[in-house]
């Protein structure tokens, strides 16, 4: 087992284990902090897959932005003075059966399919290449996403404070 494999298994266990705790933990704040570890694990997997820029973006956008936003959501929609910020669960048994079947099917499909694997040459850093294709091949998507983010932020602000009109 090479060092690469050991690091992969560490990050895989971190990702899947804390992902399991995210969906089973009863306390919402605990679940949000387990989500932090899942996102860190995914960033580690990105590094192993030679996506250094994406790993940094994952840390900055998810951990620095989305997770904070979710924590704000938790804090603003529960009475924080309550010691227990808990969430109920419904349909446990059908959900376990259904998602268990789904997981079995997807995992066996992923393992049985004979994926054609021919790695290209590993780039030393992807930032240059990503910036290049973002402004050439994908420039339309890039501009549309910029518009979408602007619209989403204005829309979110206006939805959240509609009653002040």
């Amino acid at each position: 087992m090479s060092i690469y494999d050991v690091i992969f298994y560490l990050f895989a266990i971190l990702t899947v284990g804390s992902g399991y705790l995210v969906v089973t933990s009863k306390n919402i704040v605990h679940a949000a902090f387990y989500l932090l570890f899942t996102l860190f694990g995914v960033a580690g997997l990105y590094v192993l897959l030679a996506a250094d820029f994406l790993a940094i973006v994952q840390l900055m956008v998810y951990v620095g932005g989305i997770l904070i936003l979710l924590l704000f959501g938790v804090m603003l929609t529960n009475k924080v003075t309550d010691v227990k910020i808990r969430t109920g669960t419904i349909h446990i048994i059908p959900a376990v059966i259904g998602t268990g079947l789904l997981m079995g099917v997807i995992v066996s499909m992923m393992l049985r399919t004979n994926w054609k694997s021919e790695p290209g040459e590993l780039l030393f850093t992807t930032t240059y290449g990503l910036g290049r294709i973002l402004l050439t091949d994908y420039v339309l998507v890039f501009e549309l996403l910029a518009m979408l983010l602007l619209i989403a932020l204005i829309g979110a602000a206006s939805i959240a404070r509609r009653d002040n009109e």
């Binding site: 899947v16 969906v23 268990g100 789904l102």
Partner: peptide, 14 residues
């Protein structure tokens, strides 16, 4: 795939 199934489980049970 495991992460995807866990996400589906979270969406349907929470």
């Amino acid at each position: 795939s495991i992460l995807f199934s866990l996400g589906i489980y979270g969406v349907v049970t929470r």
